[in-house]
């Protein structure tokens, strides 16, 4: 891992009325690192992901992103145009519901090709070849390339969303409960796939999940959130095997009990 973090947040706070969604949250993600944010629903983890990725604005604190030239840029100060460019080049976002991340009326190949075309690709044959390679990589038969995602199973749709996100080799990927809403057997296959891709591509990932098992499988480091606050953080194995905070202990034991 290099010396400077890719993404760095300091003192993020955000309240919805009387409820603190984020309470002085700070964190950093280094290149190639997978960081999971765990907690139950309502703990503020999805809000944190939205704030970190620039989709929502904090009331206090800031988020810095270090661009490929090594320059640290404030995510909430860069303007919509620059942020959108970032989202379709350096960054990726995998939504819990694949419908939010895919174009359901566009073929699988078109879904994967869109980011390439947005980045300027103009050779149909080359775009198709690359889309086919990525479909294969996420274990979708390239023969189904011209089918719309609506004809795919939930697990296939999620794998397609991942291919669409990764095709331009982003440096940082935000994932919001990527295995939520899928059957357990489908989840396991998807987690294996994500783990292999992340390792192959050397991606940095910010993963939000309520699934401790998913976090253990994928993440190098773990942040535990409760009521908008980070109550514990550390290396994944350390946090899960030797939880210090009572809430973390409860989370871990509830998984073991289940």
């Amino acid at each position: 891992m290099s010396a400077a973090p890719l993404l760095e947040a300091e003192g993020l706070s955000l309240r919805f009325g009387a409820i603190p969604a984020l309470d002085r949250v700070s964190l950093a993600v280094w290149p190639g690192e997978v960081v999971a944010i765990v907690g139950e629903s309502g703990s503020g983890k999805t809000t944190l992901l939205r704030v970190l990725s620039g989709l929502a604005r904090p009331q206090a604190g800031r988020v810095l992103y270090r661009d490929p030239a090594g320059e640290a840029r404030e995510v909430h100060g860069m303007g919509e145009a620059a942020l959108r460019r970032l989202h379709r080049s350096d960054w990726g976002f995998v939504h819990q519901n694949p419908r939010d991340g895919l174009r359901m009326g566009v073929s699988a190949g078109g879904n994967v090709g869109e980011r390439l075309m947005a980045a300027g690709a103009r050779h149909y044959g080359a775009i198709r070849a690359q889309a086919a390679a990525w479909l294969r990589r996420v274990e979708i038969d390239p023969a189904r390339m011209d089918d719309p995602p609506a004809k795919f199973s939930g697990g296939m749709q999620q794998r397609l969303q991942i291919a669409r996100t990764l095709v331009t080799h982003p440096r940082l990927v935000f994932m919001d409960e990527p295995t939520g809403g899928l059957d357990v057997s489908v989840q396991a296959r998807l987690l294996d796939l994500i783990r292999a891709l992340v390792a192959d591509l050397g991606l940095a990932v910010l993963l939000v999940t309520h699934d401790i098992a998913a976090a253990r499988l994928l993440a190098h480091r773990l942040l535990v959130m409760r009521h908008g606050r980070v109550v514990e953080e550390g290396l994944t194995d350390r946090v899960l095997d030797d939880p210090q905070h009572p809430y973390t202990q409860l989370l871990v034991s509830s998984v073991l009990a289940a």
């Binding site: 078109g110 090709g113 869109e114 075309m117 947005a118």
Partner: peptide, 8 residues
Amino acid sequence: GLMQVKLY
């Protein structure tokens, strides 16, 4: 990009 997708 979306217009190019339509042509694709």
